[in-house]
Structure formats: C-alpha cells, structure tokens
Design a protein around this nucleic acid. Structure first.
Lengths: 350, 350
DNA sequence: TAATTTTGTTTAATCGATTAAACAAAACGA
DNA sequence: TCGTTTTGTTTAATCGATTAAACAAAATTA
C-alpha cells in the first residue's frame, strides 16, 4: 500500500523545485532546462513510478479531457455501437468517455447532465429523449459545448448529427410500393421525438404520393415502456383476418426484434404473407429466416462526426454544425417482389 | 457565457466565509449553524445556480466516486449488457462509470488502466484479456481495489465474479448426449483465457465421461481477430461430407452469431442435420428459425455482484471475494431429441 | 569593465473545494 | 460576578498540480 508519488517527491529526491519537475515532465521550457537535470528528473519519475494526478491537473488547467455521453440505453446495440465509435474517436484525441443511460426519461437525463457538469466534462454528446427540449435549452445557457446525435429538435439551434429520417423512411416505402406491396403497415413509437415523427411523415407521404390513402388503422404507435406487449398486439391486429396487411415497416431495431420474434412464433411467411423492412442494422435482421431489408444508418460516420464536431467546439470553434446523413436501403429477401395476382409489377432493385 | 459560480461567490454575496458555505451545503456541523444563515446560503446557492466543482472536491477528499470499467468491446451485447447493469448499480451508490474497450489487447488495456488510474478512479471492474495476467499482478501492487468479471486467473488471488464455465459446458454436453447426439463439435477461440479453457474442459470431460472419445478434429479453435472467416471455415469443415457432425457447441455469442449466419446461408437443417447450443443469451438466438438452446449467464447477477464487491472494497473491506455463478441451460428447438435410427434414446428435459 | 542578455531555476499564487483549529460572543453555572 | 460551556463563525492549511514572475549566475556585448 505504497503511498502515491507526487511531484514533490520527485523534486525532493532530485533536489530541485516542483516547478522544474513539472516543466520537464510536460516538455515545457525545452531550451531552458539543463539536459542533465531533465534526464535525472525523468529517471527518478520512472523509478518512483510517478503518475500524474489528473484531478489536480484538471483543477488547475480547467480541462478534464472527458466527454460525457448520454444514450437511451447502453445495452441497445444502436447505442453501444455508437458508444464504441465515440470511444475510439475520443481516444484518438486523448479524451475519455463517461456514459449514462437515460432510459428516455427526463429525470434520469437531467441527473446525468447534472453529474457530468459537476464533473467538469469538457463536452457532451447526447441522444436526447422525448421531453428533453427544455433541458437542451437550459444546457445552451451553460458555457459547455455539446452535440446531439441521432435525435434533435428542429426548433432549437444546436450542433447535431442525425439521419435524414424522412428520406430514409420515404425511400423504404417507395421500395415496398415498387415491389407491389399496397397495404403497408408501420409499427412505431407514440412519441413526439422528431426523428420518429420524420419516419412517420416519410411513411405517410410515400403512401400518398403513390396514390395509396393513409389508413390510420395500419399505423401503430406503441409505448416505449411497454414495447413487447405493444408490438405483439400490433402484429396480432395487423395480421388479424379481415384487415390484412401485406407489408410492414418497423420504426426501430428494438421494435423489429420484438416483432420478428412474434412473427416467428405465429409462423407468418415472410415475404409471401408479409414483407418486412426495419430501421437500423442488427445481427437479428440477418438471422431471421428471411433476412430483412433494412435502412442502414451510417453509425460510424455519425459517431465520428459527432465526436469531431464536439472536440472542435471544445477547442473553441463556435460555429453550429448540423448534419443530416443519408441512409442506405439494403434490400434483401424480406421484400422480394410481390406481384398481385395476374398483374405484372416491376420491382425496383436499384 | 456566465462564468462559473464557486463557493467564494456565494460567500461574498451572503457575507460569510467559504467555510460556512461549505458546511451548509454539505449538511455538516448541523447543530452549530444559525438557521437563518443556513437558509440564506442555500437560497443564494440556488439563485446563483451553484454547482459543486467535483474536481476540486475530489482533489481535496481524495475520492472521485468514479468506477473504471474495462470490457473487451462495448459494442458486444455481452459487454454492453454488463455495462448497463454496472451503470445502474453504480448509480445507486452515486458512482459514475468511465469505460473503455480493450479489444482483448494488452496494449489497449494497459493504456486504459493507466488512464483510469491517472484519473484517480476509486476502483476498477475489468474483464481481462488473454495476456492480462502480468497487468493484473502489477495492478495488485497499486493501492486501488478492483474486481474481475467474466474472466479471471486461477493463479492470481483477486476479487472476481465469473461463471462456472466448466459446469456450464459440461451440462450442455450432457444435454446433447442425452438427446442422442454423439458426434459433437465445438467452435471456440484459440486462447489461454481461463473461462474459454474451462468451456473446453467441460466439453472434453463430458464426452469422455459418456464413453465418447474426444476427437481433436471436431474442436475448432479460431482466432479472435479473424472470427468470421474462422467460424465459416470451421462450419464448412464440420459439415463437409465424410466427417459429419450431428451437434455443435458455440463457445461464445459472437461465434454463434457468425455461425448461425453461415448455417443459414448453407441451408443446413437445425436440428435435423445439426443440433446447436450456444453460450450467452442474445436476441440472435431467438431469431434463428430454430430457436437455440443456450447457456444463460446470469448477467444481472454478475454485474450487480461485481459492483457491490468493488464498492465494498472501496469502502475499506479488504477481504477477497471470489464467486463462480451457476449457469442455466435453456432448452429449445435447436436440440430436439435425435434418436439414431431404430434405437430409442430417452431425452433428458430436466 | 560595466551593462546587458541569456540561461537555468525558484518563488509563490492559483485552481475550488474541505476541514481542523482558532476565535469571539453569548449563555450558563456556581 | 467570574469562569466555563456552548454557539456560531472565521482563519488558514491542504489536496497536487501549473505557470507567471522573480531571481541569480553565467555569458555576451559594448
């Protein structure tokens, strides 16, 4: 239980002041310090196994080299995938990441922001939850930079990196329609979150632009905190006799996962009885017996850009950067062409 | 860009010393402070939107309320699942988690430990990689408590919470054998990691105890950094004509995920042509057309215990705690009974 | 040789808290 | 009434670094 070594210990052993030790160990005043002394200091530092106390350093320099990351749930593959990218990118710039899961709740994320600010993080990357607008507004008043990822608020002028969810959703629907599907349902969340709203808008807009009336009964908006039951109920309703649906769009990976499990147990034939498209790329979509067509979010790009923008902001760039990344539609078996009886419908496989 | 408020600002506004402010805000010297003054201080703190500088506090108190978490890869569902539990448990005790992914590499985890120690974390939770023994030994010399999770080194006396991997593997094999499978292969990693070695030992031991000779050709030990190709090659070999295998044990979820994808593309019939068991519980195993029998690790238990043990150690408990948790075998379709032609073999569905 | 510059190092303030010890005033006890 | 407690608050050291400014000695210049 050897006590911690500090600058003073090195200074004492070498017989110089702590200032000199600090200069040497930080490679400052290069030209000014006698070589022999510098070497001796480094030697002793090594020998005593010195370790800078980052806390003390941070206090003095007012910089912690720490980024606070707030996601909905670190155990969701979307969040953890993003976290990994951010970690790597932060590491390249010598930053460390502290994280927290908000569970989409305002209370939790308020607490997280509070904790992170107390800890003097240099900046924040936040995937904000539904009712976080007020929180974000108040964060703007703080002198700390932050970047929103995945979600943002169109009325608030902040840095963000997100997907162009409208376009993504729209093009997924166009694909389904071009493959001959007409009665297309969607399972989404009951939320005011802008990204989810945009997905809905894309869904409705694609229907209408293609002469298909939007039918409210085919759009299920379930609750986040009752996802499993919500998804199962929606699938049951959508597949119930009498109001058949021939294709279904899952608004998120979590919804898709629950949906696919249920579809499996119901022995629904995909794509013959039901075509499927999901947002997000997960292993689950590959493993379903009919690999799913999905809307691939450029996660690495998103994480990298968010971190880059944040670090630039930390370093003094005060410009606001807002990025809507394009999604990629990866077409697979779950949306094979479905020509209605006797009618030839060309399928668009661009 | 209002400058940060500190104790001094409150003290000045109220007209008292910073000491008094500190006492009030920390609820110390309760009886001694005049009520009116205390109230006024709290009021002004509120009004100025005061926020403790945790860095300064940590420097003085020598306590950061931070836990460093090192996993193999935060984007792996096992790691992120564990991270989530640890986050929640830490939060209950007012700790924050900083994390890093080692990618199973010594260099990376050395750097992570170094960074975390510099940051004066109060303790570490580590899922150590293959060659981390030396690192763990040197960590023992530091005055900082740590707990290993998932993996540990039998020769090093440290706190750990892990699975009883031998038993888990053994009972999975017993189940396969009792279901009538005889030529059982395994895909694992080429590693000296104790937990993986134990899984192998369980595999071999179960075979031999049941009168089946261990055949080295049926045990594939692939490289972590070339997982996809390794798994695909192994599956190809195991299913090649001439050396048929009728069941297969995946040593980890990542191996299973790659394996299942490949098995899907090869159109191998599970369980008729090949029974499957995997370690770890992931959504992927549910989504495979024949839901997989799997060895369920009690992740919540593991995370909670690890955090609990760590916090107790931080608080002064110097006893070493070593826990091997039992796994649970969840039996599903991928291991349905497989009686060899004409012979009745009872299947054990305990 | 005296003045100036350069070189090498130390002094001391500072970051923003905590907290033991000191202190002053009021209340109490004998 | 005078000593002793109690109450309420301040002083000042401290955590472990950083860094501007001061300083002394050596080297250079005039």
């Amino acid at each position: 239980m050897n006590k911690k070594i500090c600058l003073k210990d090195i200074a004492a052993k070498v017989g110089v002041s702590t200032a000199l030790v600090s200069y040497v160990l930080n490679n400052k005043k290069e030209g000014r310090i006698k070589k022999s002394v510098a070497e001796r200091i480094k030697e002793v530092a090594m020998e005593l196994n010195y370790r800078t106390n980052q806390i003390a350093k941070s206090l003095k320099t007012n910089k912690t080299f720490t980024i606070g990351l707030i996601v909905a749930d670190i155990s969701n593959p979307f969040s953890s995938g993003l976290a990994r990218i951010i970690e790597d990118e932060a590491d390249k710039n010598n930053y460390t990441v502290i994280f927290g899961s908000s569970d989409e709740g305002v209370l939790r994320s308020d607490k997280l922001i509070d904790t992170f600010l107390n800890r003097q993080v240099d900046g924040l990357i936040i995937a904000p939850g539904e009712n976080a607008a007020a929180q974000i507004l108040s964060l703007q008043k703080q002198p700390i930079p932050f970047v929103l990822v995945d979600r943002y608020f169109p009325d608030i002028n902040t840095n963000y990196v997100a997907l162009d969810n409208y376009k993504a959703s729209y093009s997924a629907m166009e694909h389904l329609i071009s493959c001959g599907y007409k009665r297309i349902g969607m399972i989404s969340f009951a939320t005011s979150l802008f990204n989810i709203q945009e997905r809905k808008r894309g869904y409705i807009s694609a229907l209408e632009k293609n002469g298909i009336a939007f039918n409210q009964d085919l759009l299920f908006e379930i609750r986040y905190d009752d996802m499993k039951a919500g998804v199962e109920g929606a699938v049951n309703d959508l597949m119930a006799p009498g109001r058949p649906v021939d294709a279904l769009l899952f608004a998120t990976n979590a919804i898709a996962t629950h949906g696919l499990k249920h579809i499996n147990t119901l022995h629904i034939k995909v794509p013959e009885e039901l075509a499927l498209i999901s947002f997000d790329k997960t292993d689950v979509l590959d493993l379903f017996y009919a690999p799913l067509t999905y809307i691939n979010q450029p996660l690495p790009e998103m994480g990298r850009l968010a971190t880059k923008i944040l670090i630039e902001a930390i370093e003094g760039n005060s410009a606001i950067t807002q990025i809507n990344l394009p999604a990629e539609l990866v077409i697979r078996k779950s949306t094979s062409p479905h020509p209605p009886k006797g009618v030839h419908v060309p399928c668009d496989f661009r």
